[in-house]
Amino acid sequence: MKPPPLDYSRPESLTDALRTLADLGPDGKVLAGGQSLVPLLSMRLAEPMHLVDINRLADLAYVTRADGQVLVGALARHAEVLASSLVPAAQPLLAKALRFVAHPAIRNRGTTVGSIVHADPAAEMPAVLALLGGTVRVLTAGGERLVGARDFFLGVLESDVQPGELVTEVRFPVLPAGAGTGFAEVSRRRGDYAVCGVAALIALNDRQEIEQARAAYLSVGPCPRVLDLTEALAGAPADSDRLPAAAAMARELIHPEGDIHATAEYRRHLAGVLTERALLEALAEARDRGSADFGRQPAGNAP
């Protein structure tokens, strides 16, 4: 298990990086944390390629808040996002989900942006971005484009990044007051990819009733799947016992596949159980966060 021969560049600036990527076209691949790429290389599932190592672009190692978004730069390691002091208040779901990402040693090197670009349907970060309706900032030597989460994930391990492009940032909408998030997953061993996982978001109105409920699912299809469960819960009180209805709705709407760890039927069942658990957590958080901003902004960029 050793990687094939590789070409390698290590640009010292973003401009250099983009120029290199532009020159290389389809041969160029970005190396950031490498926690998914390097094992694929070692197993020789990935072809020889030209790696463009962006680890010198220290300017991209940021977690900040601006314009109602949490901005995560391409070189921010999972551990840094998790440790960031602004995350718990601005977007608590990030921290909740990051705790399920592999183990600390992987989080110390792996990047949140890389995980999203890698688009593993069993990974937590793509589902979180999809649920929140976040945005991916993609640069080329010639310019910039912003891609919404809904358009970003194309298939298993496929995201909308074209040859010559570099994802420099992902943006997670800040969680408004009166909204809450929850995350629940079942994995075979702690730290493994999820057998099934659910990220949930609930927004309450000023009467403390559920106004909006959404959930995103991992490991149930080729891409993160976002369901609007509002129909099952709209108008329900914040201590709702109607969560099972939302769970039932989720079970109806998703069509997972079986694999060596779980049958499709079990996955579907789990999706229901975890929907309820994640919604319950979201509901509690929404109550705690009050409803001062109610009505003025939706929870995230609603898809």
Binding site: K29, L37, L40, L45, A46, H118, V156, L157, E158, S159
Partner: peptide, 11 residues
């Protein structure tokens, strides 16, 4: 042929 999806690719 050289076929694959994303990084997983083979000849």
């Amino acid at each position: 042929l050289c076929v694959g999806v994303a990084w997983i690719r083979g000849r």
